[in-house]
Design a protein around this nucleic acid. Structure first.
Length: 910
DNA sequence: AATCCGACATCGA
DNA sequence: TCGATGTCGGATT
């Protein structure tokens, strides 16, 4: 069962008369339990309750009771032996008498206590029963979740009932936005009379929905007719209580999709929710799920949580406003100046989605303004902060509609909170005619005309911003002297996964200024566009982006361009995990980068801490904005590191330990065709795998073994069907790895990915075993132990950590980017001998713990003392070679390494 | 010829 | 179901 179905089921359950005996089973059935599971509970075979209730292991212990016994029953449940039995894993307790309803979540400690009829309002509380995960955010937004789910039902029904609207998704979206406005308006006295809209429908529309569209259409017409024109408009009497709203929302077609009986029921069903509880920032982000097939199952997948939005907005400008508020104290003039300043601040989100950044920014500013007005004794004054200064661009039509609505609702709610409902109502209608949310592709629209620059001296030609600007609106200067702040969470997409259209967007932004842009993430285009806008207008920006634009190879592609635009990093949040409402969390690690062309203190935020620095570099480290370029030859004179062997075989050339044994049992001679195959995981976790390693002269023999022949055939067909040209070419020799086949007697294996929790690189030394190193690792063939010593050092780890790429936040090792760029001083023969001995000691220390895996040995909290000592000794020797003593910390290590890197790369060749 | 990446992918507890 | 932690092969240079 999905969330929509659960909501429906428990709503229906609550509407039925309460049945003491049946309720527990009906309740569990609503959450998706199968009939067989219910049957087993009923018969008692799976009911573990010891107090005559129902206990479903892993889930819930619930009991119905006589009137007035709920608190006692809940405490009985809590104290019962069965609840306390660990094996039963009870998460929820629930007691009800049909009057009141009480429940407790034993994991989070949350409780619910409400009248029985209201329990469906807490259905998110029980989501884990249906295998859906609930977040704190989600449980605090029950209304928004329910409203979204119900709108979803209505939307899909209307789509199904109106196939002729298939191609008119904009009209459908606009219609939904109008409905949402009406639901909100009728519950907030914006419409005169409680539930005016829903009641009108219920009174006038036929039960089968046959004329619903006509009724609604007339209402729309009323709301689009200003009072002077009303008499002429010939409105039916029942439509006249509906006020003039317009503001673009009700202008245009009044056509309404047709309603079936079911759609009609859903409509009134939604109307009966209490829409005063709507939370525009949260609702907006969830509701995209209504119109978006892909997001339907995820409910706000790309939703940015409020704390994360504040991580952007506070350092960008809100903190500064609050500082000025503090400084102003009770000085009336200063307070007024601040208010005037705020009225000229423009907030612009070029990928605004449903507008949650804009809504939060607006709400926060209203809070500051209210404090000003309170201190000036003008608490009930009309706000000087206009929602027209909150501008956005959004690609998806439905989101764009909702963004606008969300701002309108936020404005009303702030007015109610700060000025009282009477004043809020007086100023609310009609809505502003203009729409400040533009629906379109932000990378092809001219930001300068959508959010015109501010300040008297600015004269801009839009061609500077994009290669081919679209129609540029006349630039107005109404916001003269004001500030503009760009914020948002634009879409990320790695180069491999970009759509054709996204690639074209990238080309337009980057091609005019830079050739090697194709490996950049899509979000980089927004960064550059923002940087340009900042340069041209003096604005500042802060965007949430994937962390990959401040790591690895992308740094050298993007950041010179940002610097060219005279932008500097004003503040940054280091990597944090994305969190959203979906149960399958988007696997992405984010950063926030603030850009500005102005000076000032820079701040680096990391988790809960922050520090002020003078410069923030593109790797989000302080002190240096040096960029490290990847290189194909090394800066040092240690051994060469190569990429591992790439099979491109669909797994067909690879054998597990078991498969190998089976093969050899039947064909003992095949042992000549097999080698040990070691990638990152095999090495780190001590897994044994093997690969077919067939020399050309062995081919006839190899193919005589049916098992091998089948595998080789599969490789051939897979490679020829591949989209990769290299794979196609290698289809001709399917018995071989696709390229760089290489083995040697001794080799160092360097996993390309490994856990962020390691204190040292988890590398290995293979001696005399002719292993095949996979492309999940890099390799130094015919290696020596000096290489091993350097790779094992804390110094090398800090270099990797600072400039290397990452997968999530785990380390990603690259020969070109990390090994070849690593600065090493000239090593004497004695140095080499010392380092070799240190490397041997590390290997010996590991060996002492045989058969522990590398994963075991390098667990940060369980690293054996002798291994730690061996690494310490290695660091001691190596660091003395660098500066004659140990480094004090990583900051000092990086300072030295970057210093050396700069010197070694700027030497003029003679 | 050789990678560097992944609004990820895939384990096993 | 969710923490933990690194596959695999394509598009790009």
């Amino acid at each position: 069962m999905n969330a929509v179905e659960i909501e429906q089921a428990i709503t229906e359950l609550a509407e039925l008369p309460f049945d003491v005996a049946e309720f527990p089973f009906a309740f569990l059935e609503s959450f998706g339990n199968k009939a067989t599971a219910i049957k087993k509970l009923r018969s008692g075979t799976s009911n573990k309750s010891d107090i005559d209730g129902v206990l479903q292991a892993n889930h819930i212990h619930l009991k119905t009771c006589d009137a007035g016994q709920v608190p006692q029953t809940l405490s009985d449940l809590k104290g019962s032996k069965a609840t306390q039995t660990k094996r039963n894993k009870v998460r929820f307790l629930l007691a009800t008498d049909g009057e009141t309803f009480e429940a407790e979540d034993l994991i989070t400690g949350e409780t619910v206590s409400c009248i029985y009829d209201d329990f469906p309002n807490h259905f998110v509380f029980f989501w884990p029963l249906a295998g859906l995960s609930k977040t704190k955010q989600l449980s605090e937004s029950e209304f928004d979740v329910r409203a979204t789910l119900r709108l979803n039902k209505l939307y899909t029904t209307l789509r199904a009932d109106n196939p002729d609207w298939e191609k008119r998704s904009h009209d459908m979206n606009h219609f939904m936005a109008r409905l949402i406005f009406l639901f909100f308006a009728e519950d907030t006295d914006i419409l005169n009379g409680e539930d005016l809209f829903t009641n009108t429908i219920e009174t006038l529309a036929n039960a089968d929905g046959s004329n619903t569209h006509e009724v609604i259409s007339e209402l729309f017409r009323a709301m689009n007719t200003d009072y002077p024109d009303r008499d002429a408009a010939n409105l039916p009497r029942w439509a006249t209580p509906f006020p003039y709203v317009n503001g673009g929302l009700f202008s245009g077609s009044t056509e309404v999709p047709k309603f079936s009986r079911i759609a009609q029921r859903y409509l009134t069903h939604i109307g009966h929710l209490d829409w005063t509880k709507i939370n525009p920032d949260i609702f907006g982000s969830m509701i995209q799920a209504v119109a978006d097939e892909e997001e339907r199952s995820t409910l706000g997948m790309h939703y940015t949580s409020v704390p994360n939005i504040l991580k952007v907005l506070n350092p960008l400008f809100l903190d500064d406003l609050r500082d000025h508020l503090d400084q102003a104290g009770d000085n009336r003039q200063k307070l007024k100046n601040l208010r005037t300043r705020m009225s000229n601040i423009r907030v612009f989100d070029p990928a605004c989605g449903s507008g949650n950044f804009l809504v939060i920014a607006y709400k926060q500013m209203r809070e500051v303004e209210f404090e000003i007005n309170k201190r000036r004794g003008e608490a009930f004054d009309r706000s000087e902060i206009s929602i027209r200064n909150f501008r956005g661009i959004e690609l998806r039509d439905f989101s764009a509609e909702i963004a606008r609505l969300a701002l309108i609702i936020a404005e009303y709610q702030c007015d109610v909170t700060y000025r009282g409902q009477k004043d809020a109502l007086a100023d609310f209608l009609p809505l502003d005619r203009e729409n400040w949310i533009t629906c379109g592709n932000a990378l092809r629209l001219d930001w300068l005309s959508i959010c015109p620059p501010t300040g008297a001296g600015v004269k801009v030609k839009s061609d500077d911003l994009f290669e081919t600007p679209l129609d540029q609106a006349e630039i107005d200067f109404e916001n003269q002297g004001g500030e503009t702040y760009i914020c948002g969470n634009p879409p990320y997409q790695g180069s491999v996964n970009q759509t054709a259209e996204q690639k074209e967007d990238m080309r337009r932004i980057f091609a005019p200024v830079f050739k090697r842009y194709k490996d950049l993430d899509y979000v980089a285009a927004f960064m550059l566009a923002a940087a340009r806008y900042n340069r041209l207008t003096g604005a500042s920006s802060a965007l949430v982006t994937t962390n990959s634009i401040v790591q690895g190879e992308q740094v050298a592609m993007l950041w010179p361009l940002i610097f060219q635009q005279q932008n500097k990093v004003s503040f940054a949040h280091k990597s944090f995990l994305w969190s959203n409402l979906a149960s399958n969390q988007a696997a992405v690690t984010c950063i926030i980068v603030g850009l500005t062309i102005s000076g000032g203190v820079r701040t680096i935020f990391d988790g809960g801490t922050s520090r002020s620095v003078e410069v923030i570099g593109p790797y989000l480290i302080p002190s240096t904005d040096q960029i490290v370029q990847k290189r194909s030859n090394a800066l040092h004179s240690l051994s060469k590191m190569d990429y591992g062997n790439k099979p491109t075989d669909g797994g067909n050339l690879i054998l597990s330990s078991v498969e190998k044994d089976e093969l050899l049992e039947q064909y003992p001679h095949a042992t000549d065709l097999l080698r040990k195959y070691v990638g990152s995981q095999e090495f780190i976790k001590g897994i044994h795998r093997y690969c077919l390693w067939i020399e050309d002269q062995q081919l006839t023999f190899a193919l005589s073994i049916p098992e091998i022949q089948a595998r080789v055939e599969k490789v051939k067909s897979l490679r020829s069907q591949s989209r990769g040209t290299q794979a196609n070419k290698a289809a001709g020799s399917p018995h071989r790895f696709v390229f760089t086949p290489h083995t040697s007697e001794t080799a160092i294996i360097v996993p390309q990915h490994f856990s962020e929790r390691r204190e040292y690189l988890t590398i290995g030394y293979h001696d005399g075993s002719r292993v095949v190193i996979a492309n999940s690792a890099s390799a130094i063939y015919d290696a020596n132990l000096v290489d091993f010593s350097v790779l094992s050092s804390a110094l090398h780890m800090s270099w990797l950590s600072a400039i290397g790429g990452r997968l999530k936040s785990d380390y990603r090792y690259s020969n070109t980017l990390v090994w070849n760029t690593f600065p090493v001083p000239k090593l004497t023969e004695k140095n080499k001998a010392d380092l070799t001995r240190c490397a041997e000691d590390i290997l010996l220390a590991r060996e002492a713990h045989f058969p522990a895996t590398i994963a075991d040995l390098y667990k940060p909290d369980a690293m054996p003392q002798n291994l730690r000592d061996a690494h310490e000794a290695n660091d001691e020797v190596l660091e003395r070679i660098y500066i004659g003593r140990r480094f004090r910390n990583d900051t000092e290590r990086l300072e030295k390494l970057f210093d050396m890197y700069t010197k070694m790369t700027t030497q003029v060749p003679s």
